[in-house]
Design a protein around this nucleic acid. Structure first.
Ligand code: MN
Ligand code: MN
Ligand code: ZN
Ligand code: ZN
Lengths: 140, 140
DNA sequence: CGGTTATTTGAAAACCATTTTCAGTTTTCA
DNA sequence: TGAAAACTGAAAATGGTTTTCAAATAACCG
């Protein structure tokens, strides 16, 4: 990921490295302010502005994807599959990317129903992760 | 819709009526500030706070659904089908609800891949509406 | 109908995630 | 190593949304 940044002409800075590390230490996905906290463990002077700026660059390069939260805030997850979507645990917020979003038939049906030509889609799923499904668990 | 509000114990006020009218005059979906403008045609003193409050009540009663915009802002659309999702025109923002979101197989596959138990999902599609598909059109 | 009470309303202020500005710092590269 | 380009963080600005609060309105009862 750092290599991709460098290849794209961006400098290899301590601030950016700390954001990358934070991204991989998170629970599959994290908000900018969570990344700030995680990143400061590696680079205490890290500022929130740089977290936002780094995430924007990573998004443009397709290395990170922005997830939408119900309240309108955003969260970021490393991209694993070219066409991936996410399942998010509503209890502990663990997030896993899945592939095989096989909604071609749904898209065809929507196009037939509405006359639209569909170009993109958002799909996010919410539920409980294996840990949170296990009975008798209390900690997050 | 007004009847449903009354039935649920809410007062029938001029401000709420103007928000309802605005909702049906919109292009299938509208932001709070757009609804404010439309609503003021019916009730000039309408305030943005009441628009938000009315939308919150309508959401709770299941009469309106909140759509997520890419920038994190929200938009609201009248509910037509119990389990509906939306296609949004990226050019003119016309929004149509569709039903028959047949993603049971995708959900099963995600559950198998990840071990999660899926409870809910978000699905929004983006593309061009019939009008905006027609060549030689320029107006929105 | 009035009168009374409970609900609702809008302006202004508060909130808070995100973006912009800007002067100082760090990287890059020759 | 030194100059130029890229980057950084603090502080301020932005803008959608929520909270507060006193005044206005709707519902209800006689
Ligand atoms: Mn997909
Ligand atoms: Mn669905
Ligand atoms: Zn979990
Ligand atoms: Zn259109």
């Amino acid at each position: 990921m750092l290599a991709a940044l460098t290849r794209a002409g961006y400098s290899n800075t301590r601030a950016r490295r700390s954001v990358l590390e934070a991204l991989f230490e998170a629970n599959g996905q994290a908000s900018p302010s969570e990344l700030l906290v995680l990143g400061r463990a590696h680079h205490p002077a890290l500022g929130i502005v740089t977290v936002y700026r780094t995430l924007e660059v990573l998004s443009e390069l397709g290395l990170v994807r922005r997830l939408h939260q119900d309240d309108g805030c955003h969260t970021y997850a490393p991209v694993q599959h070219h066409h991936g979507h996410y399942v998010i645990c509503v209890r502990c917020h663990r997030t896993i990317e899945f592939e095989g979003c096989d909604i071609g038939a749904v898209i065809a049906s929507v196009e037939a129903q509405t006359g639209f030509k569909v170009r993109e889609h958002w799909l996010e799923m919410f539920g409980l992760c294996p840990d949170c499904l296990a009975p008798g668990r209390d900690a997050a």
